[in-house]
Write a protein that binds this DNA or RNA. Structure first.
Lengths: 247, 247
DNA sequence: TGCGTTAAGTGGTCTTACCAATTGTGCCCA
DNA sequence: TGGGCACAATTGGTAAGACCACTTAACGCA
């Protein structure tokens, strides 16, 4: 969308349509909930055919920027970050070891979020984090349910930061992160000692938020991540050994 | 794209088209660089009209997932994160004080990236960071050029992390971050003392990477952000006082 | 005044036609 | 025999017109 600015009439129709929306959205002329001009009228105004206009409208709709309602009209939507979960999955899935690397993005967002949560979390936030901590502990022996609870626990912390940009980024990675949680659980869930440590580590993370100590919370969370890394490293070594002996 | 799975033939045409691509991309049947079936053939196979197919192809193309070449064919693209810069800008620009909040996302990504850069940065990375440090110092008195150099300095650090997910997220926020850099400079550039401190702070950040000390690098970067916040707080207070006296 | 019916307005999908860019094939000439 | 040029085929780009389907508004009648 960031094209070199040339005479609008010389630009391909599709780019003129995109520019039309971009300008009006950024100018505030079109706001969430506004109804835009009907397709046939807009096509005439932009001097394009309706099929081409619909191509762009569909694109913007798939991003959530437009809310197209059959028989009613087309409205400016609230940009939907959920669509990005798929996109990020596509984007990053073309990379090797992406689940491992996603940990970096997760650590980046969560460590900053937990710092903010220490000062911004309200009673409802703390209650929600505590609730997911409870569910997590109950489901320690179940990789699927435990992985989901683990994800929700961490997502509650990010939500407690009350930072729109952090929750947006976290939401964009949600599908990959959730997959990562479940995969991690599957490599470790059979070891009761590890499982016990896992619950304990999450409890300490929670308590550090309650204590409202940003540096400590950041540290506890990093320790939690490091424990998880170490656990998986040992599991891999053990699996490798078993594999060698079997050979 | 995460729709409830129903009989494919009963789904609207557009959803079937999206599902067609999603399945084949995730299955690895379609890889970057592959050429897909010509439009007219694909329309027949999916039992949709060509205009509808083009609507979805245009959408996927705008996300960079498809590389459509006039007269040549349609190829699977490498998902282009640059498109997300605009989308994130739309997404987050619907929020109040978004430039301020974007700082949180920036801090999250950069503080994690700089930790990784301490162990992963190679000679070329360090040279590039140093180069942008030089440009930054030369352009301290120019908000536009200095803002760009500042952004590039920080972006080089993120690149030096060699983390695909962090660079992807940072790229998605690039437009907002760059705007943020320039805006910050505009509030402070007239004060020579602040400007001097700015150059010095960046130098210390750079040196901490060279020293390969993750905790120190993280701390220096946070101090740098804190100094920037303090500077802007003072500038706002001063502007407010002047405003009051003028009233 | 409220309900039902009809018509108008709006998006959804498709067929057909034609334009424009790229690529491949065949023929001619050196 | 090889290279170059021209033409045709293949592919994407754009549009008009037709018709379907959903929503909303207006009008008439009880």
């Amino acid at each position: 969308m960031n094209e070199v600015l040339v005479s609008e009439s010389k630009q391909p129709g599709s780019k003129r349509i995109v520019a039309y929306f971009k300008e009006r959205l950024l100018r505030g002329e079109l706001k969430v909930g506004d109804r835009i001009m009907p397709e046939r009228e807009l096509a005439v105004e932009l001097e394009v055919g309706r099929p081409l206009l619909r191509e762009v409208l569909r694109s913007l709709s798939m991003l959530g920027l437009l809310d197209v309602r059959h028989g009613s009209g087309t409205y400016i939507g609230k940009a939907d970050i959920r669509v990005l979960s798929d996109f990020f999955t596509f984007c990053l899935s073309q990379e090797q070891d992406i689940l491992d690397d996603t940990m970096q993005a997760r650590m980046a967002i969560e460590c900053q979020a937990i710092r903010l949560a220490c000062s911004r979390a309200n009673e409802a936030d703390l209650a929600r984090i505590g609730q997911w901590l409870g569910v997590l502990i109950k489901t320690l022996g179940d990789p699927e349910e435990g992985g989901k609870a683990d994800f929700m626990f961490h997502q509650s912390i990010v939500a407690a930061s009350h930072s729109r940009s952090l929750t947006t980024l976290y939401g964009a990675l949600a599908e990959l992160l959730q997959l990562s949680h479940v995969e991690r659980r599957k490599t470790t869930y059979r070891n009761p000692e590890i499982i016990g440590d896992l619950g304990e580590a999450h409890r300490e993370v929670f308590l550090s938020i309650v204590a409202k100590d940003p540096d400590q919370a950041d540290q506890r969370l990093r320790e939690h991540f490091a424990i998880g890394d170490e656990v998986r490293r040992k599991s891999l070594i053990e699996a490798y050994r078993k594999g060698s002996e079997g050979a």
